[in-house]
Design a protein around this nucleic acid. Structure first.
Length: 465
RNA sequence: GUGGUUGUAGCUCAGUUGGUUAGAGCACCAGAUUGUGAUUCUGGGGGUCGUGGGUUCGAGCCCCAUCUUCCACCCCA
């Protein structure tokens, strides 16, 4: 017997019953919505070959991948010379598997491996945990769930429009009323870079601009200059930070700014097409306004997003008036499967961060009571005779679809009652000698304290109704 | 990966310049009440003060290491 206090790894969590029930409510809303739009579930292994994952997330990302030590004598294939060559080299010798870092790369791997069996366009959703060796902080864990929906094998911008629709539907169903779906396009970012005379440097510009709401104009200016962007270019860029007006007005302004750039035109054309689809779909995202008066869907040229594989539209969702990073994001990637030797397959997808959605719903107290329902009724027993009387009643309740349980021993009444109280079971049925004699069971409403005498049939009827 | 922060009962936290036997509220258990939970009253159990070293006559308090928590960077869901 160890005297050690047990603990769990940094950045991981246990989920108690009450939490799991509420998380399942979120998962359920997301699943039903995905399926309504024709996406089907996929699951992939928790671990992938390390070689599948490395190089897909940039140098920083590679460092955040949890590697799995080879089983057995993991040093058997290494020599002293290997150790001298440093940790990067030795990693390949002692680890060939790793925990998945996201769901998109495993999905791309799956598509490539099963390309002959898949009917394209292939729409799949995937709800599984991912792991990152990041340093935890608020809303950032080392193990967390992603809920991805992706479609590969079509360039149609209908997919982008439907992503907006799904985000709108999921978050509205969950009771959120004040959130912003930000949309932008890599082509616009590239066009802007070209228009200000820094063609090809949009990724550096993006990283800086992405921090606008955090470090302000001056901070971005400083960062851009540090990254070697010319002063003249930085000044040309700054008017874009506060493009005002409706989405249509912003589109018009961008059209005059970017008309000379091929990439910019591509981005603008794509976005206009997405808007057309949304109009024909009578999208609530176009109609709804947030309490702040801001439109639900917002074209935001300062939205950049880190992942380098996006090539077309990009999305991000922010819940307003809560201290939380984005709860959803995604975009189009033209060549993800190209990494695995299958070029020319375009895909677009997005993901919900369930842990963050949970924290937001908790903070805004948006979990409905119905999402927390457990046992409906507890049968209380006094002795062997009452237990035997209760069992058929219990089964009748369950046959009627009523979540019910019989306290498994003839404990003191106080103990059984407080069990019901703590599990927030709304009804208790007492079955004692009087009840058995009369056939009338005592039904107690734990919220109001009211009691009534009912037959078994009446009991089922009351609770089912 | 960088800088800071936190850790005392199951939980939330007190604990004086380092000084006798480390406290409170809530929770838990038992009783008041042998057929009634949540409310009331009484009593009780529970701590190697995150862990390991060090300084000191003496450490919950000071020093070092390590783990953990939270925060800001980097980055990201």
């Amino acid at each position: 017997m160890s005297k050690e206090k047990p603990s769990i790894p940094k950045g991981t969590r246990d989920f108690g019953p009450a939490v799991v029930v509420k998380r399942n409510y979120i998962f359920g809303v997301i699943k039903r919505t995905f399926e309504k739009y024709g996406y089907l579930p996929l699951e992939t292994p928790a671990m992938e070959q390390l070689s599948v994952l490395t190089g897909k997330y940039g140098d920083e990302g590679d460092q955040l991948i949890f590697k799995i030590l080879n089983s057995g004598d993991f040093l058997s294939k290494t020599t002293a010379a290997d150790i001298e060559q440093g940790s990067k080299h030795i990693t390949r010798k002692i680890s060939e598997k790793a925990l998945r870092y996201d769901l998109t790369v495993p999905f791309a791997r799956f598509v490539v491996m099963n390309r002959n069996d898949i009917t394209f366009p292939f729409k799949r959703y995937q709800i599984q945990p991912v792991w990152r060796a990041d340093r935890p902080q608020k809303g950032r864990y080392r193990e967390f769930y992603q809920c991805d929906a992706d479609v590969v094998g079509t360039n149609s911008l209908l997919c982008e429009a439907e992503i907006v629709q799904m985000i709108q539907e999921v978050l509205t169903t969950l009771g959120l009323t004040d959130f912003t779906i930000k949309i932008n396009h890599r082509g616009i970012l590239a066009g802007i870079a070209e228009a200000i005379g820094e063609k090809g440097r949009e990724s550096e510009i993006c990283v800086a601009i992405d921090k606008l709401d955090k470090i302000g104009k001056e901070g971005v200016r400083k960062e851009l200059l540090e990254r070697g962007i010319k002063t003249a270019a930085v000044e040309k860029l700054e008017p874009l930070y506060d493009l005002t007006g409706t989405n249509e007005e912003i589109l018009d302004k961008l059209t005059t700014l970017l008309s000379e750039t091929a990439e910019g035109n591509r981005g603008l054309a794509d976005l206009r097409e997405v808007w057309q689809y949304l109009e024909l779909l009578q999208s609530q995202a176009l109609i709804s306004q947030n309490t702040s008066g801001q439109p639900r869907l917002q074209l935001d040229v300062t939205l950049a997003r880190g992942l380098s594989y996006y090539t077309g539209c990009i999305f991000e969702v922010k819940v307003n008036n809560v201290n939380m990073g984005s709860i959803s994001g995604g975009g189009r990637y033209d060549n993800l499967t190209g990494m695995f030797g299958l070029p020319g397959v375009s895909g677009v997808g997005f993901s919900f961060g369930v842990d963050r959605v949970y924290d937001v719903l908790e903070e805004l107290q948006l979990f409905p009571d119905s999402s927390q329902a457990g046992t409906q009724v507890l049968l209380v027993q006094f002795d062997k005779a009452s237990e035997q009387y209760a069992l058929p009643v219990l089964q009748q309740l369950r046959n009627a679809g009523i979540a019910s349980e019989l306290y498994p021993e003839a404990a003191k009444l106080k103990k059984q009652m407080s069990y019901a109280d703590q599990k927030r079971i709304p009804y208790v049925v007492l079955i004692g000698s009087e009840e058995m004699a009369s056939g009338k069971l005592k039904l107690r409403n734990m919220l109001t304290g009211e009691q009534q005498d009912v037959t078994t049939e009446e009991l089922v009827k009351v609770l089912a109704g």
